[in-house]
């Protein structure tokens, strides 16, 4: 099964969005407006970058539309708490959620007790993509995935720090593909993966953004790109497909609503969020400060991508 690169879709979607906005500037705005404050359920706890991003978008929508958007932090269970609450909310446009793609495309399949499925939501917009990579310390004896496999064979095994079960599955795919032994070291998250690598306690590890500064400072190198598109910081690094492993991660910060939104409501919300996502403030925070790849896929491309990824997750979960 082959996956289509989302880069094209993203461009097309952005193009369509731009054209629509040029041709009918006020039509979408006049269609629907909320009767009461919109509740924005944020799938992260207070204080982090993702929380800031969600609140900034909410501010922007309030500014541009005059709506009232109330941010409510409901972190936990990798966004699962937010998703569960959102699923049970009325699909009338007064409750929307901000979270991350894998909350919908992965968690319901791999985590028991997640009482929702990807079909339970209408997907509205993405803010930015977090590019996942496998990194190692600069002095590691390998530069590419092939060389890593070779080193693993020589030494018998290598240790790889992961940020969660998702990345553990990627490590398993790599190990299966090369028939090598990769010992998976679980951690509390991306920052700890970097600590373990820098301290020389593991041979390599997965990361999704915080590693950029270590690449620039020359302390680390990217071994392989886990995305379908080239990386922003090191575009020359090969991705998994180049090595013959048919897999790519798609992790976006995104907005969604309970399934069954009326068309005019979805249109109005998607347009409002799209404008906010493309505002200077959000571009600066997500693009420059959090070093993510900007872009709104738009509702159609985002839904298609999540459904595709969900099928892959279902297949992987079934064979485990």
């Amino acid at each position: 099964m082959l996956k289509v690169g989302y880069g094209h879709r993203m461009l097309v979607a952005a193009g369509i969005a731009a054209v629509t906005m040029l041709t009918q500037p006020d039509a979408a705005l006049a269609e629907w407006s909320p009767q009461r404050p919109i509740q924005l359920l944020i799938g992260f706890n207070e204080g982090g970058g993702a929380d800031a991003l969600a609140r900034l978008v909410a501010d922007n929508i309030e500014g541009s539309r005059g709506w009232t958007v109330v941010p409510i932090n409901r972190g936990g269970a990798g966004g699962g708490v937010m998703a569960t609450l959102l699923r049970n909310a009325a699909p009338d446009g007064h409750t929307i959620g901000m979270g991350v793609t894998t909350t919908f495309s992965n968690n319901p399949f791999f985590n028991e007790g997640m009482d929702y499925s990807p079909e339970d939501f209408d997907y509205l917009a993405t803010i930015a993509r977090s590019q996942m990579v496998l990194v190692a310390r600069e002095d590691a004896p390998f530069d590419t995935l092939d060389e890593l496999a070779e080193t693993a064979r020589e030494r018998g095994s290598l240790t790889v720090a992961v940020m969660g079960p998702d990345m553990e599955r990627v490590a398993d795919m790599i190990a299966d593909h090369y028939d090598i032994d990769l010992r998976v070291v679980p951690t509390r998250g991306g920052a700890e993966v970097l600590t373990q690598i820098l301290g020389g306690h593991v041979d390599a590890g997965f990361n999704g953004g915080a590693h950029h500064q270590y690449i620039r400072s020359g302390d680390m190198k990217v071994v392989v790109n886990l995305n379908s598109e080239p990386l922003m910081v090191t575009p020359e690094v090969a991705n998994l497909r180049d090595h013959g492993i048919d897999y790519a991660t798609n992790i976006f910060f995104q907005f969604q609503a309970p399934a069954g939104l009326p068309d005019d409501v979805r249109e109005a919300l998607a347009t409002a969020i799209d404008e906010a996502v493309n505002s200077d403030g959000v571009r600066q925070l997500a693009g420059e400060r959090m070093e993510m790849q900007l872009g709104n896929l738009g509702p159609e491309a985002l839904s298609a991508m999540i459904m595709d990824d969900a099928r892959i997750s279902a297949r992987l979960a079934g064979t485990e």
Partner: peptide, 14 residues
């Protein structure tokens, strides 16, 4: 750390 990032300060080796 979250506040640093929001305010454009990137803690780290650089």
């Amino acid at each position: 750390l979250g506040a640093f990032i929001i305010h454009g300060i990137q803690p780290g080796p650089l």
